[in-house]
Amino acid sequence: MKMSWERFQIALFEKAPEAVLTHLLIVVITVALAILISVPLGVLLTRPRYRKFGVVALNILNILNAIPGMAVIALALPILGLGIKPAVVALLFQSLLPIVRNTIAGLLEVSADVKEAAAGMGMNQRQILLEVEMPLAMPIILSGIRTSTVYVVSVGTLAALIGAGGLGNMIIGGLALFMPEYLIVGAGLGAIMSIFFDRALSYLEYKITPPGVRAN
């Protein structure tokens, strides 16, 4: 494969910006929705009244997660059609598990003694959740959000298959037309975006870990 500098420039400066923006849009919408659904669900599944559904819910999400990303994306087409919306819905399915699982794990890890002491001082259930449980569970929840985000960036490249655009467009186009320039730009930016999110969220995770807990 011979590469041309000219085509490389076209790929990087003319095609890439739009692809990156579309990709970011898909990632941000999907992850935001995933957080809005998963965190409350995780909280609910650790409350005594709903705890019994926890295992069932996790098992269902676990099975969903075993399905290859390509299959989920492909199945969205006959059911939901072409475009960004079907892609977001498809990606959403598998981005729930890491956040729900980590929310539950994080909340369960908060020591019973601390909760007992908080209740004993007269904090109500809501105060205990917001002031004690959530802050202590937050690093673990964030780590789940990080896993989900990296997943969405990655499988999001396949969203191009059902017409959602994004960086996948450049890669698949590049492969189909044997244009390595497009391929390198698309794949490279995809990798950079994914690594960027991973690092940024890791940093946030570190920052948000309460110093008193970090010391251990």
Binding site: G69, S154, L167, I171, P180, A191, I195
Partner: peptide, 19 residues
């Protein structure tokens, strides 16, 4: 961890460009 972050489609594509 970094390699794992790379989207699979990207990684396949990158491999192909290696002569």
């Amino acid at each position: 961890n970094t390699i794992f972050c790379i989207p699979s489609l990207s990684l396949f594509a990158i491999m192909v460009t290696i002569p």
